[in-house]
Nucleic acid binder design. Structure first.
Lengths: 345, 345
DNA sequence: CTGAAAGCGCTTACAG
DNA sequence: CTGAAAGCGCTTACAG
């Protein structure tokens, strides 16, 4: 492997000049520039990134904008763990991560957190663009400042993000439907249970539902699909009553909850000994893990929450440190979890 | 972050002495050694690995011992791709990989390849310990030479491998059984189809079968399980005749092939228009991908072949370059593939 | 037992 | 437009 010194010798120039050519810095005559470029090509020279990192002796700080995490059952607990792992692995490059948290159900808090982020200067931004309008305006600011950013978990079309890392929601719904079609029989019925609080995540949740319904439509299966929305209240009795009424339709055998809130239904099923009901939901958090182990939940679709954070962070570091340009869309595997494979993540 | 120079100043010694302490090299008086260690502790000093890598300017070469790859349909095609990717990502550390291939069905060729490997000197070894006896003897040699090694795909108990990267075969069989139990109905029957050529991989294949049977036993499902071994011949007519006879039992509705050779059965099913038969197998190669897309194969259990190679290689590089000690058993996710999620790997 | 100096392959002022 | 030199934080002979 040739070094900058070798190239300089071959071109009869100093290493400073070679360095200028490599980084397209001004101050080199066209002629010598071309000569050097040719030699670089010819000898397939590649810069030694270790030496580069050492010489630059630069600190990199990326900002992370994700929802606040209250407990280890929260979805965002895992992406944060992933971010921390990636950050730790990159410590040798003097990297650091600064968090900006917001309330998942309050667009104002999102705005505030984003604005606070923009007050400082960062080398890159990792964010979950939960609120569409509030995001778009501020992305322009990032673009003007030439700060690269990556989306995780929520896809936002038409932005200049260098990458999106998350799941293909529609197809994950279709997979859920396929399994549901195996769990229930002809003439039985299935209900999609939406949780009002989730609606904030509109696109992902709605896409999952579309994928789910589309599967049954395409296959023309003789299974009726209902849809209900759980009341948005802390009053457990009101919720229980609502579920009770919903399930009074005896033909209902399958429940699909297109979010991690599947535990609400799992609790009900367990409490009222309705284990004959089949249940499919999303995301492995501590609560859901219990229900999948005792088979109250039949299948869980995993979003690779940890990996979203891990990969998002690594993608940004690789981009700003090593100039590695990622794929625009990194759709993660649609992982299916059951009692049998939940140990291996 | 403190540097070696800072520590040296604080301890009133030269950086050479600090370096000796850090690496436990001899030639430092007990007293100064202790003093330096204390200062290192106190200031939470961590060595700058970038500088270390640059100063060492060392080349690392790891040897890879895996079966020969004839076509892109071979299982080992993907691990090799993963090895290449990891190797490429590590190029900045002047790393390289040397391959030693053998015939999966010939223990002699395995011995020869391994012996050839041992003739040279490597910093680490990545291997698939296909042949038990032949492996064990040679691992002793590696241990004597203090060469770290990692197993992929095949688990070998009682060795001093720094890690095993692969699937938990028994549990993957149980998962296959769970899905099979959804695909077939009461009183129907299921057949496990072994392919003689696979027997070489004894442990993994047998463990999958055990897991599969164990699921039906534990659940006491009223589904009879048969087991057959396909004749080991190139004579397609003989094979077809054997399958024809096997399937003459009209109650058989489900087929489980505990290996990537599931395509043999898929071809038969397609040719003879037997799509009512449910089919579950292993591994996503080009052939199997076609059959999963047209739903001849219902479910495929993926071994993360690519990742086995990738992670195995990274694990070794991290160990020899960055002193990162891996987990002893890295069981990979038991990934379930269907038409709906096969796009996302 | 300990230190001073050269070197790994880059980047970055600075001088000309 | 170009070069010489110092420096990033380590390791490694070599000298004493």
């Amino acid at each position: 492997m040739k070094t900058i010194k070798d190239i300089a010798a071959l071109a009869n120039v100093s290493i400073g000049t070679v360095d200028r050519v490599i980084h397209n810095r001004p101050g080199v005559s066209k002629k010598t520039k071309e000569r050097i470029e040719e030699i670089i090509q010819e000898h397939n020279f590649q810069i030694n990134k270790t030496a580069r990192t050492l010489a630059l002796n630069k600190k990199y700080d990326i900002a992370v904008l994700i929802p606040a995490i209250e407990s280890s059952s929260d979805f965002w607990y895992l992406p944060k763990k992933g971010i921390e792992k990636a950050s730790k692995e990159n410590e040798i490059y003097k990297t650091s991560v600064s968090y900006f948290h917001f309330n998942l159900f309050d667009s104002n808090s999102f705005k505030e957190a984003f604005d606070k982020l923009l007050e400082n200067s960062f080398d890159a931004v990792l964010l979950a663009p939960v609120f569409l309008i509030e995001t778009q305006k501020r992305l322009i600011e990032l673009e003007q400042r030439k700060i690269p950013y990556v989306f995780i978990n929520i896809e936002l079309q038409g932005a200049s993000n260098i990458s999106y890392i998350g799941q293909h929601s529609f197809d994950s719904g279709a997979l859920a439907a396929k399994l549901m079609s195996l769990l229930v029989h002809r003439e039985e019925e299935v209900i999609i249970v939406k949780v009002r609080k989730d609606n904030i995540h509109h696109s992902a949740i709605e896409d999952r539902i579309s994928g789910f319904k589309s599967y049954f439509n395409t296959k023309a299966l003789p299974i009726k699909i209902h849809e209900v929305i759980l009341p948005n209240t802390k009053d457990q009795i009101a919720i229980d009553t609502f579920i009770y009424k919903t399930l009074s339709n005896q033909r209902i055998k399958g429940l699909f909850v297109p979010s991690s809130k599947v535990s609400i239904m799992a609790k009900y099923i367990e409490k009222h000994k309705l284990k004959h009901l089949k249940l499919i939901g999303y995301d492995l958090n501590e609560e859901n893990a219990v229900f999948i182990k005792n088979e109250t939940i039949d299948f869980l679709i995993d979003q690779n929450a940890f990996f979203q954070g891990y990969e998002g962070t690594k993608t940004l570091f690789n981009f700003i440190i090593n100039d590695i340009v990622p794929e625009k869309n990194k759709y993660l595997p649609i992982k299916l979890l059951t009692k049998e494979n939940i140990k291996y993540l």
